[in-house]
Computed example of a mutant assay.
Amino acid sequence: MNNCTVREIFKGVDFSDADFNIAQSKFERISVKKGDILLIAGQSVPYQYYVEDGCMRTYHITDTGKDVTIQFAIKDWWISDYTAFFTGGKSVLNIECIQDAIVYRLAKQSMEELYVEVPGIESFFRIKMERFFGSFQRRILSDLALSAKDKYKTFLKAYPNIEKHIKNYHLASYLGITTESLSRIRHELAHE
C-alpha cells in the first residue's frame, strides 16, 4: 500500500509514524476486473473494502430471481455486506465489480485491532458509520416518498460521476423502476 492511500482513506486522522505503519499493515491492495465477484450471498463476510478507483455494487437476488442493486461504491467509498460483516452472519448480498477497480480490503479482525492500536481510527469509523446509516435512512425515505423522476435526480446528485459507467438495468434496479421508465425519465429531463 502506498503512503498516500492510507492518508486518503483516513482523512482527518493524525498519525504518528508508528500509527501510520500499523494502519498501513492492515490493508491488502487488490486489483479487480469488471465482472469479478468479491462476495456471493451465503458466504461469511470477513472484509470490507475501500474503493481507490473504479466502481463496485452490492446487489441482492430476490426469491423470484430479480436482481436488486443496493449500493454503488466509487472512489473514496466503502462497500461490504455490513449486516453480515458486523454480526458474523452469512451474506445476503453479492458484491460485483462493474468498472475495473483498485480496492483495499480490511479484515474485521484487523479493524478491531486498529480500534485499539490507533484510537483515532475508531472515531473515524464511527463517524463513517453514522453518515452511512443516515444515507441509507434517506434512501429508504426517498423510496417511500419520492417519484421515480425525483429518485433519479437524487441519484445524480449523490453519484454525479458514475452514471456513464453503469448499466441501465443496474441503475433502474437501484431506483426500483423499470429500464423503460428510466429511459422515459431521461427523455423528459433532456427536454425540460
Rank of each mutant, 00 (worst) to 15 (best):
L182P: 00
H187N: 12
Y174E: 07
F155P: 15
N168D: 14
T154H: 14
E163K: 04
G176Q: 01
L156W: 11
K153S: 15
A172M: 08
S173W: 07
I177P: 05
K149T: 15
H170G: 06
G176R: 03
S181Q: 11
D150P: 08
N168C: 12
D150G: 06
E180L: 01
E180K: 05
I166E: 09
K164A: 13
N161Q: 09
A158E: 15
Y152W: 01
N161W: 01
K167R: 12
I185Y: 09
T178E: 07
Y174C: 05
L171K: 00
A172D: 09
I162M: 14
K153D: 08
N161E: 10
I185P: 10
T178S: 12
D150V: 01
I177Y: 00
R184W: 04
I185T: 11
G176C: 02
R184G: 03
G176D: 02
I166S: 07
K167F: 05
L175Q: 04
L171N: 01
Y159K: 11
N168V: 11
H187R: 13
R186A: 08
I185R: 11
T179R: 02
F155Y: 14
K149W: 02
L156N: 14
N168Q: 15
N168E: 15
S181G: 04
Y159C: 11
K167C: 08
Y174D: 06
G176L: 06
G176H: 07
G176T: 03
K149D: 13
A172K: 05
K151W: 10
L156F: 06
N168Y: 09
A172F: 06
I177Q: 00
N161T: 11
K167T: 07
A158W: 05
R184T: 07
T154W: 10
P160A: 04
I162K: 07
D150W: 00
A148M: 07
L182E: 00
H170C: 09
L171C: 03
I162E: 10
F155G: 13
A148I: 04
R186M: 06
H165C: 04
L171H: 00
S183G: 13
I166G: 03
A158S: 13
Y174G: 04
T179Q: 10
A172P: 08
E180W: 02
S181C: 04
N161L: 08
A148V: 08
I166N: 04
T178R: 02
H170E: 10
T178Y: 00
E180T: 02
K157C: 14
T178D: 04
H165L: 12
S173I: 05
R186H: 03
Y174Q: 05
R186G: 05
Y159V: 12
T154D: 15
N161A: 06
K153Y: 13
I177W: 01
L156A: 14
L156I: 13
I162N: 09
E180N: 03
E180G: 03
T179S: 12
K157Y: 13
Y174L: 06
E180Y: 01
A172Q: 05
Y152Q: 03
E163G: 03
N161H: 05
R184C: 02
A172S: 11
Y169D: 07
S183C: 10
I185F: 07
K151M: 14
T179D: 05
